[in-house]
């Protein structure tokens, strides 16, 4: 079984994004970048499936400019077998990403594609579901447990009311939630080994997908700032303030 894992290079989750002074976008100059955390969980899951003998090959793919090769190398160091960079300078919408991935799925024919549930920059939470629709495959989103057996994936999903378990026929699309696993750290020998693993570059244009923007970013601004609060000295002062000043309890 081949597993394809799409990963995205994003701002490190510890860094607070700053809005550019001209309000055109967020400022990513000299900002620490990393693999999107949910994608890292996806890589870990694929590598574990391989270690358990359920998967035979783990292929990672990232769509972006040359810089995302850094994240692809990290994924290779975490245990992926080979990497593909789909090269483009353009800022893409989830629909574009899903269309490019659908073409790649056509070529590579993976039985399983594992994506993150959402990127922590765009916060879209769309690509996996779109890819499933475009490839006519079943989907299991927000996975906190995956068991692959007998031509299907039995997946436990984190939903608003608790946990739902579904069974999806392979080939299928899975997106990861936080509790699926705890990603490992890359060891130094594995980082060295990753440098020799194959990394192919394919031009995004070569897929024949229409990548024209459909949504225009008009403006980016800081969220409304909260007024500074006060420190209370005691529980009784807190209760008094909540009753008489904030008037949120009676």
């Amino acid at each position: 079984m081949k597993v394809l894992v799409p990963i995205k290079r994003v701002i490190d989750y510890n860094v607070k994004a700053r809005v550019k002074a001209d309000n055109t976008d967020v400022d990513l100059n000299n900002v620490k970048m990393a693999i999107n955390p949910f994608c890292e969980i996806a890589v870990e899951e694929a590598v574990r499936l391989k270690e358990a003998g359920a998967a035979t090959e783990v292929v990672v793919v990232s769509i972006g400019d040359k810089a995302c090769q850094e994240q692809l190398r990290t994924a290779l160091a975490l245990g992926a077998d080979r990497a593909i960079q789909i090269d483009t300078e353009q800022k893409l919408e989830s629909l574009h990403v899903a269309k490019l991935l659908a073409k790649l799925v056509d070529q590579e024919q993976p039985e399983l594609v594992i994506l993150g549930k959402q990127t922590i920059d765009a916060d879209n939470n769309q690509t996996g579901q779109m890819l499933a629709a475009l490839t006519k495959r079943g989907q299991a989103t927000f996975a906190s447990k995956v068991v692959v057996e007998g031509g299907k994936a039995v997946v436990t999903r984190e939903v608003d009311g608790g946990l739902q378990t579904i069974s999806v026929a392979l080939p299928a699309i899975i997106t990861t939630d936080l509790r699926l696993n705890e990603p490992r750290y890359a060891s130094l020998p594995n980082i060295m080994k990753a440098k020799r693993k194959p990394l192919d570059v394919i031009a995004a244009d070569s897929f024949g997908v229409d990548l024209a923007p459909r949504v225009t970013l008009v403006r980016v601004e800081e969220p409304a700032k909260r007024q500074g609060g006060i420190v209370v000295e005691s529980v009784s002062e807190l209760v008094e303030k909540l009753k008489n000043e904030a008037k949120v309890i009676s």
């Binding site: 916060d123 225009t216 970013l217 980016v220």
Partner: peptide, 20 residues
């Protein structure tokens, strides 16, 4: 056609216009 939505964990608010 135009909507606001939080991005980057709500550290920025984007105004976006859909051409669909």
């Amino acid at each position: 056609n135009t909507f606001k939505r939080p991005i980057y964990a709500g550290n920025a608010i984007a105004t976006v216009q859909s051409n669909e």
